[in-house]
Amino acid sequence: KFGRVHERAEGPAKILAIGTATPFHWVDQSSYPDYYFRVTNSDHLVDLKEKFRRICNRTMISKRHMFLTEEILQKNPNLCSHNEPSFDVRQDILVSEIPKLGKEAVLMAIDEWAQPKSKITHLVFCTRSGVDMPGADYQLIKLLGLSPSVQRVMMYQQGCFAGGTMLRLAKDLAENNKGARVLVVCAESSAIGFRGPSEDHPDNLIAQALFGDGAAALIIGSDPKMGLERPIFEIVTTAQTFVPNGDCHLALHLREMGLTFHCTKDVPPTIAKNVESCLIKAFEPLGISDWNSIFWILHPGGNAIVDQVESTLGLEPNKLQATRNILREYGNLSSACVLFILDEIRKKSGREGLKTSGDGLDLGVLLSFGPGLTIETVVLR
């Protein structure tokens, strides 16, 4: 008597548009150690500064975009301390800036989509910054002038794996609601975790050397309108798992001094060791076991992770080039990073006149991972 209210779509979910945005301000990685130790009044920690310089040199990052300028840091000195309470200051900045950054990426996506924004039916927003109620999803709806009846899902504090999570959720929403057009937004800022150095917490140096700011937005829907919408990728399958006891290797915690970062040297080999089982589960039903026969979007948690995944799986050097390019130009953008790589690989395919948006290949994989050593596996066509 009370059956399904919403009719299912006929076809699989497809990515119809991609937009990205970054803050205008950026830092050069080669000179960042001098800048970082100067603005945090830590130049007296000579040995720690040299250690940080070595870490920065190993990241293979060229530059990173950041909202925090020297002027902002001078006005808010607690942000430059390692342990002073600064959460309220971070909140005041990020509750406002995260939706604005997301808006810039959304406008780029809508411009490519070339359809009225009134056709957006759902919003899925993800960030690890600016936790608030009502959330960044609500603020973004107002900034864009979208209908208050847009169906919203707000996900805070997920971390680097969440780019894949957003695709998984959007696929379910698009395929189970005929005519749905799902706006996916990942907006991230390193301002939540920026803090001064400490000899007692070397993990913090890794975070300060890796993370950048950026937002990515996608429009996802099934059954694209012929002649009006141009699909870029099809989302074939999605899956999530985590490595048992992985939280002892990688975890982040909200504290009075901001978001703290805990990471062990076992993260790269542990991820590399567990990736292939995810690939087998995803691609065995499709008859694929040659990992060089697919295109790759791999989250660059750090250069060591990229190198070890490449080595463990025997990947050809060009397979992870898009990942390395984004890491070099932006650093680790947390949940937004794989979506930047997705954009990079389709643009490169277009520039080179390849037959598909995925490096000329039919199928590919998007792998994202993060806290708890959670792994998201997304098969794309």
Rank of each mutant, 00 (worst) to 15 (best):
K14M: 12
K265H: 10
V131E: 11
S349R: 10
P231C: 03
E7C: 09
K265T: 08
I110Q: 09
F37L: 08
P285E: 09
R381F: 04
K273P: 15
L279M: 11
K348G: 08
E310H: 00
T241E: 12
G358H: 03
T40H: 00
P317A: 08
S368H: 13
E352P: 14
G370Q: 14
L73A: 10
S42C: 13
L48G: 06
P85L: 13
R53V: 02
L363V: 03
A304L: 04
K100L: 09
L254E: 13
L298I: 10
V379P: 15
N292C: 03
L342H: 07
Q240P: 13
R351Q: 11
R53I: 11
L298N: 11
P300T: 03
S96L: 04
R381D: 12
G145A: 14
R255H: 10
T238W: 05
L298C: 03
L16A: 03
L373K: 15
K51L: 06
R54S: 08
F233R: 02
R53C: 01
M108R: 15
T20P: 09
L259C: 15
S149W: 07
P231E: 15
L286Q: 11
I93V: 09
F37V: 13
G145W: 00
G246K: 12
A109V: 04
E284F: 00
V275Y: 00
M60Q: 12
L123G: 04
L363R: 14
D290V: 04
P231S: 14
S335G: 11
S357A: 03
S31A: 04
A17G: 02
D28N: 07
P148G: 01
L298A: 02
K347C: 02
D359G: 05
M133A: 03
T377D: 15
V5R: 09
P134E: 14
P317H: 06
L250S: 15
D247Y: 07
I141W: 08
S289V: 08
L320N: 01
R8M: 08
A105D: 03
V89T: 11
L140Q: 02
L380G: 15
N245Q: 01
L252W: 13
E376C: 01
T237Q: 03
L250I: 04
G11R: 04
G360H: 13
I294Y: 09
S293I: 01
M133C: 02
A304D: 14
L279V: 07
S147G: 07
P134W: 08
L361E: 13
M60Y: 11
G358A: 09
R255Y: 06
K103M: 11
D34Y: 00
G370C: 13
D359H: 09
I341T: 08
V365F: 08
L361F: 07
E256R: 08
T237R: 10
L228H: 09
P116S: 11
K103W: 09
K273C: 10
L101I: 06
L380T: 15
E329W: 01
F295A: 05
G372P: 15
T260R: 11
V309F: 10
V46Q: 02
Y330V: 07
I305M: 07
L252Q: 15
R255K: 14
N303Q: 15
G145E: 01
A17V: 06
K355E: 01
G130Y: 06
K117C: 01
P134G: 05
S368G: 14
P99S: 14
Q29A: 04
Q240R: 01
E104Q: 11
N76K: 08
K348W: 00
A13S: 06
F261E: 15
Y32R: 07
N303I: 08
I297R: 03
G302C: 13
T356K: 13
K273Q: 13
L123Y: 09
F125W: 14
T59L: 11
K355M: 06
D266Q: 12
I305H: 00
G302T: 15
V378Y: 05
D362G: 01
L146P: 05
R328E: 08
D137I: 04
Q240H: 04
L146N: 01
K319Q: 02
C56R: 10
H82P: 12
I235A: 06
L101M: 08
N325K: 12
D290C: 03
F2I: 10
K273I: 04
S81D: 08
E344Q: 02
T20R: 05
I305G: 06
C80S: 11
E276V: 07
G372M: 13
T22L: 05
E234R: 04
V236M: 02
E7N: 12
T40M: 11
V338Y: 00
F242I: 15
L361D: 15
L333P: 07
S293L: 06
S277G: 09
W291F: 00
G360R: 05
P33V: 07
L101P: 02
T377K: 02
D359V: 03
C263T: 15
F242H: 13
P85K: 10
R128P: 04
E97H: 02
S86R: 13
A239N: 00
G102Q: 02
L48E: 10
N332C: 02
P148R: 06
I271A: 05
D359W: 02
S293P: 08
N292V: 03
H122V: 02
T264M: 15
D362A: 00
R351N: 00
E71K: 14
K14N: 12
P244D: 13
P99W: 14
N57H: 05
L45W: 06
L254K: 14
S42T: 02
S81F: 11
W291V: 07
Q29T: 09
T356N: 11
H299I: 00
H44F: 01
G314L: 04
V46F: 05
L144R: 02
H253S: 14
R4A: 14
D359Y: 02
E376F: 00
L342W: 06
N245A: 04
I110V: 06
V275E: 02
N318C: 09
L373M: 15
V365A: 14
E329L: 07
T22R: 10
F125E: 02
A336H: 01
E50R: 03
T238S: 06
V106M: 07
R255M: 09
V306K: 04
V379R: 14
Y36T: 00
K265N: 08
L45E: 05
L366F: 07
L254A: 15
F340A: 12
T40W: 06
A251R: 08
R255T: 02
L45T: 12
H253R: 03
L327G: 06
T241Q: 02
S81I: 04
T69E: 09
H122M: 08
D137G: 11
L250G: 06
V267S: 09
H82T: 14
D362H: 01
P116E: 12
D362N: 06
H6F: 05
P371D: 02
V309P: 03
K319D: 14
N274G: 10
H25L: 11
Q139L: 12
R4L: 14
S289M: 06
V236W: 12
N41C: 06
E329R: 05
C278G: 10
T127I: 12
K63R: 06
P23S: 11
R328M: 02
R8A: 11
Y35A: 05
G102E: 07
R53A: 06
I326Y: 00
L146W: 02
R351E: 08
E71C: 04
H44E: 09
Y35L: 14
I141S: 09
F242A: 05
M66A: 08
L354A: 12
E70F: 00
D43P: 01
N318S: 10
P269I: 04
D137K: 12
R54H: 09
I375Y: 14
N274Q: 14
P85G: 12
C248R: 12
D247G: 08
L367C: 14
S129C: 15
K281T: 10
D111L: 04
S62G: 13
L259G: 12
S349V: 10
A282L: 14
Q115M: 09
N274M: 14
F24G: 10
I280T: 08
G130L: 14
P23L: 04
L16W: 03
A9W: 01
S62I: 07
D28L: 00
I235D: 04
T374A: 13
G350K: 11
E234T: 12
A322W: 02
L320T: 00
Y32T: 03
G11F: 06
E352K: 12
D137A: 13
L48P: 09
S335L: 01
W296G: 05
G11P: 01
N292Y: 04
P12V: 02
V236P: 09
V306L: 14
A17N: 08
S357P: 05
I297F: 06
E316C: 09
T241W: 05
L333F: 02
Y35S: 07
N83V: 11
